Computed example of a mutant assay.
Amino acid sequence: MSYQEQRAIVSMITGLFIIGAYSIYAYGKVQSGAIAADDMKFWAGAMLMFIGIGIAAAIVIQIIFHILLSVAVAVQEKTRNGQCDDKEMQKTIESDMVTDERDKLIELKSARIGFIVVGIGFIAALASQVFNHSSAVMLNIMFGSFFAGSLIGSLAQFYFYRKGVSNG
């Protein structure tokens, strides 16, 4: 599995973890009666808190991913050659992380798919207001669409690395 595929999987897992944690937190608060379902201050604070948690988690998890990748390359070099030369290991890691035109095309196509999901979510959030749902529903649809866009964009990236991508 390539570096880019592994990175996409790590991003998907991180996103699923964050949206799962947010869902459990928000559902628990509403079900326990600790907050009213239309308390906009709570929803705004919870969303901001989980955006911050998501950013911090993504940074920490990517750092851990790169450390584990380096260790895996070192072990692979050690088993293949019987020794682990730092320069060879560095070369192997750098060659895995090279970004070419194909990688950029895959990034653009997957980002486009993610933006389409976010756009659909935004329209759904506006439609929720037309159908007289609470503003909290609108906020949650928008928040969920941003996470869904990120997840589906990462999934598309993984798919394109597996199946290939055309210029068309």
Rank of each mutant, 00 (worst) to 15 (best):
G121D: 13
G121M: 14
G121P: 02
G121C: 14
F122Y: 09
F122W: 07
I123D: 12
I123M: 15
I123T: 15
A124P: 06
A125Q: 03
A125V: 02
A125Y: 06
L126Y: 05
L126I: 09
A127M: 14
A127C: 01
A127L: 15
A127Q: 01
S128T: 09
S128D: 09
S128P: 11
S128V: 01
S128I: 07
S128L: 05
Q129G: 15
Q129V: 08
Q129N: 13
Q129Y: 00
Q129R: 03
Q129M: 13
Q129E: 00
Q129D: 10
V130G: 04
V130S: 04
V130T: 08
V130N: 04
V130Q: 06
F131D: 13
F131T: 15
F131M: 15
N132P: 00
N132R: 06
N132C: 10
N132V: 04
H133G: 08
H133C: 08
H133Y: 03
H133S: 12
H133W: 00
S134Q: 07
S134A: 09
S134L: 04
S134F: 05
S134V: 03
S134M: 09
S135M: 01
S135C: 00
S135V: 04
S135F: 01
A136Y: 11
A136F: 12
A136V: 07
A136D: 01
V137K: 10
V137Q: 07
M138A: 05
M138Q: 03
L139N: 07
N140A: 07
N140L: 01
N140D: 06
N140M: 02
N140K: 08
I141D: 00
I141Q: 03
I141R: 04
I141K: 01
M142H: 02
M142P: 06
M142F: 14
M142C: 01
F143K: 13
F143N: 11
F143I: 13
F143P: 09
G144R: 09
G144N: 12
G144C: 10
G144K: 11
S145T: 10
S145R: 02
S145V: 06
S145L: 02
F146E: 04
F146C: 05
F146D: 01
F146Y: 04
F146L: 03
F147H: 00
F147C: 06
A148K: 03
A148C: 05
G149R: 04
G149Q: 11
L151V: 14
L151M: 12
L151S: 10
L151Y: 13
L151R: 13
I152K: 11
I152M: 10
